[in-house]
């Protein structure tokens, strides 16, 4: 060892010196019993779930031929412009528009409900409870159910899909926004309260400007999710690329279906990258 290298602490210690404190971990005799009990419960739940879902891997092994035939039919993807690509791209735009409007048009409702449903901005505990209940309702009803309801009012088409997304997204985004408002530092709001600002002024000049980065991040995340939801909404008649995928499956045009799925893949990646880029810029 050269004189210049640092000596590790352990090497510097005299190994014969006795420690003044003995290392004895406190024993917890019941710990392994608890661990075993938790493990048994988890395994038991999985056994019941496998029964309940008819989870049988052997079926997959036996039926691989059907899957192979289906996949073989889909190859090569149908790339004809007039028959598949052009309608596919047009429908993809519709899907994107449904996701966009469903997100942005829910902003005013989500904002209002979030301000009422956050403990630090809500005017009264009863208002807080009521706003929480409204948000829970919109969140609990799946967007696909909203779509089926709106189809009966405005007919099949993208408009029903937009309405459905507005409803469901209001519930989810309102909850997420309310939680991010509850998490921020209460100091600036308190400071404005002591300066004589009323509640609306406190929220507009302290709480909201503090949470804007989180709000925009959550908004972009919801846009991402809503574009994907609007695909599924297409399957129940809300238009867009989901509708085309459904039609091509029903008419056994699996090569068109594959083309549409590839277009969707591109759309999802583009939306995902776009929102990641904005969020990076916000964080900077």
């Amino acid at each position: 060892m050269t004189p210049h290298t640092l000596t590790p602490v352990a090497a510097r210690r005299d190994p014969t010196s006795k420690s003044r404190v003995a290392l004895v971990r406190p024993k917890k005799p019941l710990r392994w019993i608890t661990t075993a009990a938790v493990a048994a419960v988890v395994v038991g739940l999985h056994a019941v779930a496998i029964q309940g879902t008819g989870f049988k891997p052997e079926l997959l092994v036996d039926g691989w031929k059907g899957m192979a035939a289906f996949t073989a039919d889909a190859f090569p993807p149908d790339l004809s412009w007039e028959r598949t690509l052009k309608p596919g791209l047009e429908a993809t735009l519709v899907t994107l528009w449904i996701g966009l409007l469903g997100t942005t048009f829910s902003v005013p409702f989500a904002l209002l409900l979030a301000a009422l449903a956050a403990r630090n901005t809500s005017p009264h505990p009863s208002v807080y409870q009521a706003a929480r209940a409204v948000l829970s309702f919109f969140r609990a009803v799946p967007d696909i159910v909203f779509a089926l309801i709106f189809v009966t009012a405005v007919g099949l088409g993208p408009f029903a899909g937009v309405l459905a997304l507005i409803c469901h997204n209001t519930g989810v985004m309102g909850k997420l926004w309310a939680e991010s408002m509850e998490e921020i530092d209460a100091g600036p709001q308190e400071a404005l309260r002591t300066a004589g600002a009323n509640r609306i002024q406190q929220v507009a000049n302290a709480t909201l400007p503090m949470v804007i980065p989180q709000f925009v991040g959550l908004l972009l995340y919801r846009f991402d999710v809503n574009v994907r939801s609007s695909l599924v909404l297409g399957l129940v008649g809300a238009g867009g690329i989901g509708l085309l995928i459904n039609q091509s499956i029903k008419s056994f045009q699996f090569d068109s279906m594959l083309t549409h799925i590839l277009i969707v893949l591109v759309l999802i990646v583009v939306v995902d990258q776009f929102s990641a880029w904005i969020r990076r810029r916000l964080a900077a």
């Binding site: 100091g187 600036p188 002591t194 503090m210």
Partner: peptide, 12 residues
């Protein structure tokens, strides 16, 4: 008016 240890301004 109050002045706080943690300042309590809106940074953005």
């Amino acid at each position: 008016a109050m002045i706080f240890q943690k300042i309590h301004l809106v940074p953005r």
